[in-house]
Computed example of a mutant assay.
Amino acid sequence: MAPRGWGLVAAAACGGASPARNRTPSSAPTVIPALYNWTAGPTRFTLGESPEIVVAGARPLLSAPARLFAAEVKALTGVTPTVTTGTAYDALTGDIHLALDNPELPKDAYWLNVRGALTISGSSDTGVFHGTRTVGQLLGQSTTIPGGSSTDAPAYPERSFMLDVARKYYSIGFLKALIRELAWLKYNMLHLHLTDTQAYRIECDTHPAAVAEKHYSKAEMADLVS
């Protein structure tokens, strides 16, 4: 299943000149891609022994990212967070707060505030999801994160990866794992090159004889993009 904001395309994307980016200070935590900016703060964050991921108010858009992030935190650290609802004041030391209270930010952007309790906020669930990718990478390095804050956003609106499955078949399981890995790095587009002279990899009712022995059914592709 593709993360929210993802797409599968059948045409290659072209890159342009890199937009101007702030030079991230050397004191900034190391993540991929690098944070857009970083302001160091006095209080570091240490993941609690029984932490809560506190979702601001009744925010159904954040429920799925919160549950996914909780499972990832457990896999990364061995610590099992509990997903709850509440305000920033309900997030205690060692907890993580997710909120949609930064309406001025672009859809893909998020604000990260690292102190006793860690906050990820944005204007959309996509931005908050990106913030959880950053924090997940940091927790994979250490359960303690240096104090500070960042307003982070992608350099490009489309961040694409192309895989030529016409020339070499890859299983649906591999494609799902690839999507998870790309999402971890804040990519948002996977281009599958499904057809070429070497093979036709997608189920076709009108010309079934053209379809390769190893191919993807319509149901598989629908599941992949759902």
Results as ranks from 00 to 15, higher is better:
Met1Val: 07
Ala2Pro: 13
Arg4Leu: 08
Gly5Phe: 11
Gly5Arg: 11
Trp6His: 10
Gly7Gln: 06
Ala12Tyr: 05
Gly15Glu: 13
Gly15Met: 12
Gly16Met: 04
Pro19Asp: 06
Ala20Arg: 09
Asn22Val: 08
Arg23Ser: 05
Thr24Lys: 12
Ser27Tyr: 05
Ala28Val: 14
Thr30Ser: 14
Ile32Trp: 12
Leu35Asp: 01
Tyr36Leu: 06
Asn37Gln: 09
Trp38Asp: 08
Trp38Ile: 03
Trp38Val: 01
Gly41Tyr: 09
Thr43Glu: 10
Thr43Arg: 07
Phe45Gln: 12
Thr46Glu: 10
Thr46Ala: 14
Gly48Leu: 03
Glu49Tyr: 15
Ser50Trp: 15
Glu52Phe: 10
Val54Gly: 09
Val55Tyr: 14
Ala56Ile: 04
Leu61Gln: 01
Pro65Val: 00
Pro65Lys: 05
Ala66Asn: 02
Arg67Asp: 13
Phe69Met: 15
Ala70His: 04
Glu72Thr: 15
Leu76Gly: 09
Leu76His: 10
Gly78Gln: 11
Val79Trp: 12
Pro81Ala: 04
Thr82Val: 09
Val83Tyr: 00
Asp90Ala: 06
Ala91Gly: 00
Leu92Ala: 15
His97Asn: 07
His97Ala: 04
Leu105Ser: 15
Asp108Met: 01
Ala109Gln: 15
Ala109Val: 11
Tyr110Ala: 11
Leu112Asn: 04
Arg115Glu: 11
Arg115Met: 06
Gly116Lys: 13
Ala117Lys: 07
Leu118Val: 09
Gly122Ala: 15
Ser123Asn: 13
Gly127Pro: 05
Gly127Ala: 13
Gly127Asn: 11
Val128Glu: 08
His130Ala: 04
Gly131Tyr: 01
Gly131Thr: 05
Arg133Asn: 11
Thr134Ala: 13
Thr134Glu: 11
Val135Arg: 06
Leu138Arg: 00
Gly140Lys: 13
Gln141His: 12
Gln141Ser: 12
Thr144Tyr: 09
Thr144Glu: 11
Ile145Ser: 08
Ile145Lys: 01
Ser150Thr: 00
Asp152Arg: 03
Ala155Ile: 04
Pro157Met: 02
Glu158Tyr: 00
Arg159Cys: 05
Arg159Glu: 04
Ser160Val: 02
Phe161Lys: 11
Met162Glu: 01
Arg167Met: 13
Tyr169Ser: 10
Tyr170Glu: 10
Ser171Gln: 13
Ser171Gly: 14
Leu178Tyr: 02
Trp184Arg: 08
Leu185Gly: 05
Met189Pro: 06
Met189Cys: 14
Leu190Tyr: 02
His193Trp: 04
Thr197Val: 06
Thr197His: 05
Thr197Phe: 03
Thr197Asn: 14
Gln198Leu: 14
Arg201Ala: 06
Glu203Thr: 11
Glu203Arg: 00
Thr206Asp: 06
Thr206Gly: 03
Thr206Tyr: 09
Pro208Ile: 01
Pro208Gln: 03
Ala209Ile: 02
Ala210Gly: 09
Val211Arg: 10
Val211Glu: 00
Val211Gln: 02
Ala212His: 07
His215Asp: 08
Lys218Phe: 06
Ala219His: 08
Glu220Ala: 04
Met221Asn: 00
Asp223Val: 07
Asp223Met: 10
Asp223Ser: 14
Leu224Met: 08
Val225Gly: 05
Ser226Cys: 01
